[in-house]
Amino acid sequence: MSNTPSAADAQGQRFAAQQAADAWKRARVGDRVTYVFSATQGPTPGEADAARTLVGRLSLEVVSVQQPWVYVRVSFIDAAGKPLTQTRLSQELVVPVRSDVTRPVDVPRPGQMTTERPSFSGRNWEATRYVSDQRPVDGPLRTRVYANDSALLYLTRGLLEASTESAGFRTPGRLTLSLHEFQAGSAEASAAAPSLERPLGPGAFYDRRVDMPPTQEVLRVCFTAERGFVLRSEGPVAPGSDPCSDFSQAEPEALEELVMNLPWEALVSGEWPPGAAREGAQGTFTVGERNVPTRTEQRTEDVEGTRHIFSETYASDPWAPGLAGAPYEARFQSLDSLTERIGEGGERESAGGSRLVQWGPWLGGQPVSSQ
């Protein structure tokens, strides 16, 4: 049973959000939440393709507390507790989250609100459902259910259930997620901070050199997280500046939204490396003393009457040791891309490109650099 919330209910939601934020200060090693998820895409109307489905469990667990940093491990497993076979979900990720804030972060939960008392993980919850229907403008139908008392589920701001249904696209798709279990850690437990060998993003950065003849610049992408929100900033590298020292203009995204969308991305992206790169030429991408085995896709197209060659180089294994310290986002992009124009005499001339030139943790550790 549900009803439309009053102004007092809306005030209660703001209190719940603050409650979840404050709970990060009391984080304990062993705090954990686990969800079951299902992602489905297809079949395409009028086509012979079959629907594809990916199911599993998503867990977030505190593995170390070094105030103000709380280190969270994100993992994806199947019902038997084994890692999923999809490349994008096959490895555990580390997310350091600040328990305080360096700037105000207020991201309203979108949608129409109704209150309800659902049952998850063996107990009843006072909760609020948010429904945002963007289907009239070819957007998704998005539903989220959050516990009003979010302290027990602070790692995901009280999330109990979520679903996103795509609309306006040729191939339908749906992602669902619901709370399976939660666990409180121990005040006596302690552990050293884990290395940021495989960061989701926060605590790490990467630089790409972008060539657009006759200009060239290096763009830096930085990540941090504060009280359940991930902050991402991107911009030109200022000479002599410290990596990732300013997140004042960074766009925040709720941590639970970021991690729950990873299974959907894994499903729709398919196998790795992407597309024709799976059968592309083998090679090695080198930055500093790091070497990464690669596959390169190359294609030729006519652009306004001039022949162009497009090359995209990807890591054969995005979890290769040579990419240790790279944020998740950087691993699943091209490491090197190049566009060349072919002149009348067959000579090649660069028409632009980009290359990963530096990455690593800014929260301790040393970055990998081509310098």
Results as ranks from 00 to 15, higher is better:
residue 358 Q to R: 15
residue 280 G to Q: 02
residue 170 R to Q: 14
residue 111 G to F: 04
residue 147 A to K: 12
residue 360 G to N: 01
residue 27 A to Y: 09
residue 325 G to T: 06
residue 172 P to E: 05
residue 332 F to I: 03
residue 126 E to S: 05
residue 166 S to W: 11
residue 287 V to M: 13
residue 214 P to N: 06
residue 251 E to S: 14
residue 78 D to I: 04
residue 121 S to W: 01
residue 243 P to W: 05
residue 222 C to A: 09
residue 145 V to Y: 06
residue 248 S to K: 08
residue 30 G to P: 11
residue 122 G to S: 08
residue 154 Y to W: 07
residue 331 R to C: 08
residue 344 E to P: 07
residue 68 P to V: 00
residue 18 Q to Y: 12
residue 346 G to A: 12
residue 114 T to Q: 15
residue 96 P to V: 00
residue 240 G to L: 04
residue 242 D to P: 04
residue 81 G to R: 07
residue 219 L to M: 14
residue 115 T to L: 13
residue 354 S to M: 06
residue 255 L to F: 02
residue 145 V to P: 06
residue 337 S to Y: 00
residue 322 G to N: 14
residue 208 R to N: 08
residue 311 S to D: 05
residue 306 T to V: 10
residue 266 A to W: 10
residue 364 G to P: 05
residue 300 T to H: 09
residue 137 V to P: 05
residue 288 G to N: 05
residue 119 S to G: 05
residue 305 G to W: 15
residue 113 M to W: 15
residue 181 E to G: 11
residue 309 I to Q: 07
residue 176 T to L: 07
residue 91 Q to S: 15
residue 347 E to D: 15
residue 129 R to C: 09
residue 245 S to D: 15
residue 117 R to E: 15
residue 141 L to M: 12
residue 67 Q to T: 02
residue 47 E to Q: 14
residue 314 Y to N: 01
residue 80 A to N: 11
residue 200 L to C: 11
residue 90 S to M: 11
residue 114 T to D: 12
residue 193 A to I: 00
residue 276 A to M: 12
residue 54 L to W: 04
residue 103 R to N: 08
residue 228 G to E: 06
residue 113 M to G: 01
residue 298 Q to S: 15
residue 369 S to C: 06
residue 69 W to Y: 06
residue 263 P to R: 09
residue 283 G to F: 12
residue 254 A to S: 09
residue 73 R to F: 00
residue 305 G to A: 13
residue 123 R to L: 08
residue 43 P to H: 01
residue 360 G to Y: 10
residue 350 S to C: 03
residue 142 R to Q: 15
residue 196 L to T: 02
residue 229 F to D: 14
residue 340 E to S: 13
residue 328 Y to F: 03
residue 143 T to S: 12
residue 320 A to T: 11
residue 318 P to L: 10
residue 37 F to M: 05
